[in-house]
Simulated scan of single mutants.
Amino acid sequence: MTQNDNTVAYPGREGAHSAVACDRLFPAARLIAQASFEAVVEAVTARTCTYGVLPIESSLAGPVNETHDLLYDSALSIVAEAILPIRHCLVGPEDIVLEDVREIRSHAVALDQCRKLLASMPWATATVAPTTGDAAAAVAELGDPAVVAIASGRAARLHSLAVIADDVGDHEAFTRFAALAPYTRLDRRHGEWRTALTFETHHRPGALHTAIEPLARRNIDMVQLVSRPIPSRPFDYRFDCVLGGHPLDDEVAAALSEMRAETARLRVFGSYRADRDEGWETVAA
């Protein structure tokens, strides 16, 4: 996945965590910033970019709902993942005391990962930005010392911002990024694999248990299970799921076949190698 003619769409600006994930996933590709998560999906769907990269799960805030919903509404598949440690910084035009901060801007997930900081500053308003990189760029452009951002140290350096407070996350945090493509990978190269899917159950007692029972019976690990509402059907839900294994593995294939028979709808979101890199480097700073 490192061909020189690859173009990779990511949300935000240079300095966003997604841009770092792109470097990890596609080190030889040309990166193209997009204005939003939806714009990334549109660029890959229209084939104006070869791949897209979006955050899909935070170790602190849980699933990134927007990415899950965009996957559900598109024909794209996950073809790779990268898990990166995230280090949040409070950055602004000047190094000021926290009591002088009036507004803190960042992506919703980053704000959720810094609850203790926000709780300690009740006088400051938290404002959601499209990405952490966008928040840093907007704060730099505004130039008001009282308006700051939660972003990476890389974004601070890029926009000549001061680091007011370093490492402001509640706990050590990791974010899982998904590489999206308009096809599903079926190759089985070395390593541990994942299969992502979405399914909807019938409305009857024990429907969820019946749907996932084939996984337990075949000793297939359910790595993640996310419940999301279906906007077109009020108070109706679907389940996004990640399994350990490849969709062409005999046991996984048999389980998926049984699940299709026991659910109202099932669609595979993609297959990809699990990121088990022991040499993660903190997204700095």
Rank of each mutant, 00 (worst) to 15 (best):
T175C: 13
A119L: 09
G191F: 08
C49M: 10
P145K: 08
E213P: 02
A179Y: 05
E94H: 08
Y237P: 03
V41D: 04
A146F: 02
A149I: 14
E14V: 10
S74L: 04
L111Y: 06
A129L: 05
S271H: 09
V252R: 04
D166Y: 12
N219W: 12
N219D: 15
L266T: 04
G62S: 11
Y10E: 00
A173G: 07
I220V: 08
A80C: 07
P130R: 09
P231C: 06
W123A: 13
P55C: 12
V8R: 00
E281C: 10
L98W: 01
V44I: 07
T184S: 14
R47A: 08
R194D: 03
T263D: 05
A207M: 08
G12V: 01
V168E: 09
G143Q: 08
F174N: 09
A80N: 06
T184L: 15
G92V: 08
N4K: 14
A140W: 02
V163P: 03
N65K: 15
A19V: 09
P85M: 08
V109I: 15
G270W: 00
C241E: 01
V64Y: 03
C114H: 03
V223M: 14
A75R: 15
Q113D: 13
K116S: 13
D5M: 13
C22H: 02
S232F: 03
R105P: 02
G15T: 10
A61K: 01
V163L: 13
S152R: 01
Q3M: 14
A211P: 04
L180C: 07
C89H: 11
E99G: 06
E81P: 01
V20P: 00
A274P: 06
R260S: 13
D23K: 15
H88M: 14
I220S: 03
A43P: 00
T2M: 15
A155N: 04
S77F: 05
V20R: 07
D167P: 01
I220P: 01
T263M: 07
R218A: 15
H68A: 06
E141W: 06
V53E: 12
S59C: 06
G191P: 06
P27M: 07
E278C: 03
A16S: 15
R154D: 11
V268L: 11
R115C: 02
L248I: 07
R154E: 11
V223G: 05
V64W: 00
S120Y: 04
S232N: 09
R276V: 12
E192V: 14
R188W: 05
A35Q: 12
S160I: 04
W123G: 15
A151G: 05
D23W: 10
R13P: 00
R188V: 05
L84S: 03
